[in-house]
Design a protein around this nucleic acid. Sequence first.
RNA 1: AGGCGCGUAGCUCAGCGGUAGAGCACUACCUUGACACGGUAGGGGUCGGCGGUUCGAGACCGCCCGCGCCUACCA
Length: 939
Amino acid sequence: MTTTTAPDANEPLPKAYDPSQVEPRLYAHWEQQGYFKADPTPSLLPVDDPGYRRPYCIVIPPPNVTGSLHMGHAMYVIEDVLIRWHRMLGDNALWLPGVDHAGIATQMVVEKELARTEKKTRHDLGREKFLERVWAWKQQSGNRITTQLRTLGFALDWSRERFTMDAKLSAAVVEVFVKLYEEGLMYRAARLINWCPRCRTALSDLEVEPKEEKGKLWDIAYPLVDGSGEIVVATTRPETLLGDTAVAVHPGDPRYQGWVGKKVRLPLAPEKRTTADAETIGNTIPIVGDAILVDMAFGSGAVKVTPGHDFNDFETGKRHKLPLVNLLNPDGTLNDNAGAYAGKTADAARKEVLKALTESGALRGEKDHVLARGRCQRCDTVVEPYNSTQWYVRAKPLAGPAIRAVETGRTRIIPEGWTKTYMHWMTNIQDWCVSRQLWWGHQIPAWYGPDNAVFVARSEAEAAAAAEKHYGKLVTLRRDDDVLDTWFSSALWPFTTLGWPEKTADLDAYYPGAVLETGFDILFFWVARMMMMGIHFMGEVPFKHVYLHAIVRDDKGEKMSKVKGNVVDPLDVIQGATVDRLPKAAQKQYPEGWKPQGADSLRFTLASMASQGRDIKFSMERIEGYRAFLNKVWNAARFALMRVTPGAVRPIDDVKKDMSPADRWILGRLQELSRGVNTSLKEYRLDEATMSIYHFLWDELCDWYIEMSKPALMDTTASPRKVACEATLVHVLDHALRLLHPFCPYVTEEIWQKLPLARRPAETIQLARFPTGDATWDDPVSAAVVGTAQELCNAVRRIRADVSLNPSKKVTLRVGCTDAAKREVTQFEDALKRLANVEAIEFHAELGADKTKQCAMMQTTKFQVAVPLEGLLDVEAEKVRLAKELEKAEKELAGIRGRLDNAGFRERAPKDIIEKDEARAAELNEKMGRIRDTVSRLN
RNA sequence: AGGCGCGUAGCUCAGCGGUAGAGCACUACCUUGACACGGUAGGGGUCGGCGGUUCGAGACCGCCCGCGCCUACCA
């Protein structure tokens, strides 16, 4: 295996950058060298100790252990950028990797597999054998995720990799459960929950997705028992009438004055129904008055009340002490309370109920109605409100401190707009149902005695001891079958991963984390709950910042999902993919499949799109564009390595006196860039940072600095100017690569290792200091000089293009300008000749008529530029061209004039704005005068 | 129903009180000794609509239209 990071410096770089030749080799080397491994020791020293290093910790949002990364996960690049940036700043950075057991999702996958291959259910196997299968599945597929994370180049400390079901983390979950129980924050209660009949488990509110569908609203007449009339109720679920235990009307409704207290007979309902309290009731139910449930204006103003199968009705039932009739079996079929309909599914029962009601004449109307039904987030099955006994976390006492932590700024949410959403949810928080009727997960540490007395304990032995004390004798205990919601263990992730409940050095050094970075879609699921648990168990917030990034969508803006078939595997982008692996929509556009783009291109693209909006649309075109950018950077380095004298260059401080204005300018720009990148990163503006790096490297370094430096670099002897130029070029590349490194670790490391640096500050670029800007290199004077040269160069190029002069044809230049401008420009004469392909430059104070004859002319702020065309000049075309220039200037001047002529503007606008406008107006006037002059000479 | 967000060049998106920007795409010319994954130049926008604040408004305020998301409810 090749592990060298310092390939032979004499070996020229390949002409084009090929990530596949670089990335796997470098990652293996980095990991082997332990560059990602963190050590808490320096952060445990006193802050004023010279060895102290500020901790900077991010725990990864754990992906599903048996899943596979999709483009959304590739957004981890944000965390990698932050970690690499802080490590280079000298902070003690830890990025802690790990995976999550993903209870329902994983169990479902294994159950499906079991059904497919062996035609068995988990019950056929039994709990123990089934769990063995899941663990085997986890072993088998668990590596895929970590391989993907490595391929993306992430600087994760693999020595600290965690899994939510590790023994230690599982023990921590039990510890939290027991503590919450002891504090009265964990309780068991019977109430309606969301039940997925397919998964056969309870779900939390957040795991239910309401989806609109077309349905019907039926009117059904219930006859009064005393025969004095009937009451018509409306319902979207007629079959639930079998579970009705009352009809509610508004107490103030004139239509029903005196009806409250009367009884109606439920059509179709069996004569004996068993309530949740194991009492038997019949099929006559009372009319109750309820102002909360009933809206007089809706329908008939009378509502059937089904406490067993509707959340509002459940509350109504409590208010009026109504019995609760459960109609459902756990699999969603109707039970004996449904009488003749027992054993049928709800849908089948509905049809029959409607038929029977029609026949009896009780059905009074039917109309179309749009309603939203909750569906299981995992399997899309319609979720039923279902009465059952579950474990709950009392949320309000935990939410209070989590609200205050954000109010007081101990945790800051970025972008700020999400703060309001967080507050709103926290303020209206409901108790959290945490038990799930699954097998894969953390089994609830509760044991039940013969009389169902509950013993919550850290172990079976502890529970047995408590039971013995309670009963005064040994009894057989039965453990709670259920497991905890996956998000319950995820909520503990920021501290259990660091060793809690043990007091570890990691916990001391790295808690609270610096930032929690994730998609906004799990703000409630995860972020809010980590806040509550972190504060409660650690006494301190789990992280100082919460950065919520936008969601990656496909190129049409749709959320990526397996169902839609638009999921993109980041590895397919990095390594390339055959056409059959592409999303359907992309197959037409890329019939040959995807070419490999490399991890750096993907990383840079995602970082550049990580703006503060809500959507990130996946775009292959942009990735291709940034691959071209990295190739450009590669070639700039290739050029430098080919041109620079072999051996180490001098440090820039040694050659300062020999530097050209271009050298000083690019060094000044580098400082400005360094400051800008740090500022942007501090505010999580990765998009801004990538844009400024891109602009610097391509537009300023490649297009101007390198081009301007070529004459000096081509010197055959080691002239002072050449030495200074080489030092500058290598220094700028060194530092620009460091700035780019957090985004593109591979290409930057590969190039950096080959640079002939004066001083190599570290064995890897990821441990080199991140540039923060050194103001002593700021040089506005040189910047102005370069600006002047660019102005002249641009004018010549523009003339060439405008008169369609072959770019390869050399021209002579006549320039009219002040002595000062001439002095500036002559410092770049060689470079200018190259850049504009000019043979010779004649300077004049003023270009008179004799000098502009047969010339194409251009007037810039500082220069009159004339290109002699000896008989080639098309006078008419030239007139048109100049007229266009004139028009452009006139338009600009008109705008400024409009402002300057406005009395209000002159009175109220700041002075510097007015002065700027006046100066520009004067410039434009001068320019226009010269253009008019030129035009008149053409005639 | 309430909340949030978005609507700027063909596409994707920055800008958020002082002369309309970038990338990609497009057009013309160019195999100049790092790079055709390149170079040079260029075209293209009454910044969703209507009002208001201001000397000045994509930018701030109000209303409206369109799209998206979240929360809650809909017998």
